[in-house]
């Protein structure tokens, strides 16, 4: 970060990216669903603000529209949906397969791996992309880790959301070309997925009286 003025847009970008990594690690360490949802909301808001910092194109309105859409969906709509589902479920405590300390350590390893990969891959075609890549990969890794380590279906949804945030982050540099349709389509998929899963989680809870995914093992052939 040396050489970048702190209060320039690039400086703010680095700050936000740093915060995103912190939210990833906090999510891995979180022990309550409420905290998780708040952290996801925070991450969504931070991600939603990114298009404003990265846009260098000509249309002035474009970044604001995109930022509003992503801020609204990632920062408000999806967390609100999760909050509503959570309210209908009885227990709030997370019971992961792997303890939070180990999770954070693995997450840190993922972060280091991302930094190494960013150097190794030599992503020179887009300056912004190479800056965003380590954070993005860390977020994808954290999302996958959340999915793998969590026992309940709802907590796995958090993982999917974080995973999607990582993919979104890879796409944000495309804002320079005013082309985020791919990301929007992925977001739509995830949104539908969350709706379906949210409904499914409630149904699963009613049938199994639990949302533990290991109970689903009885459904295998």
């Amino acid at each position: 970060m040396s050489g970048v003025p702190f209060f320039s847009s690039m400086g703010w970008l680095h700050v936000i990216l740093g915060f995103i990594v912190l939210t990833d690690l906090s999510l891995l360490a979180a022990e309550h669903r409420r905290v998780c949802i708040r952290l996801i909301a925070l991450q969504g808001m931070l991600l939603g603000a990114l298009p404003l910092l990265m846009h260098t194109g000509e249309t002035a309105i474009y970044p604001w529209v995109v930022a509003a859409i992503f801020f609204g969906t990632k920062g408000i709509l999806l967390p609100w949906l999760l909050w509503r589902t959570m309210k209908q479920l009885p227990f709030s405590a997370m019971r992961p397969y792997v303890g939070s300390t180990v999770c954070v350590l693995i997450g840190l390893c993922g972060f280091m791996l991302s930094l190494w990969l960013a150097g190794r891959l030599g992503l020179t075609f887009n300056a912004l992309f190479s800056q965003v890549f380590p954070t993005s990969f860390t977020t994808i890794f954290a999302g996958l880790l959340l999915i793998v380590t969590q026992r309940t279906a709802l907590n796995q949804i958090f993982g999917y959301l974080v995973l999607e945030n990582g993919i979104y982050l890879l796409n944000v540099p495309m804002i320079q070309y005013e082309n985020l349709w791919l990301e929007l389509s992925i977001l739509l998929d995830i949104l539908v997925g969350i709706f379906v899963m949210g409904i499914a989680v409630l149904h699963i809870y009613r049938v199994f009286e639990s949302t533990d995914v290991d109970r689903f093992a009885v459904l295998r052939d």
Partner: peptide, 12 residues
């Protein structure tokens, strides 16, 4: 094993 987590771990 019938565990979604494990399948995603395999993918990872």
């Amino acid at each position: 094993r019938g565990l979604v987590n494990l399948y995603i771990l395999y993918i990872l």
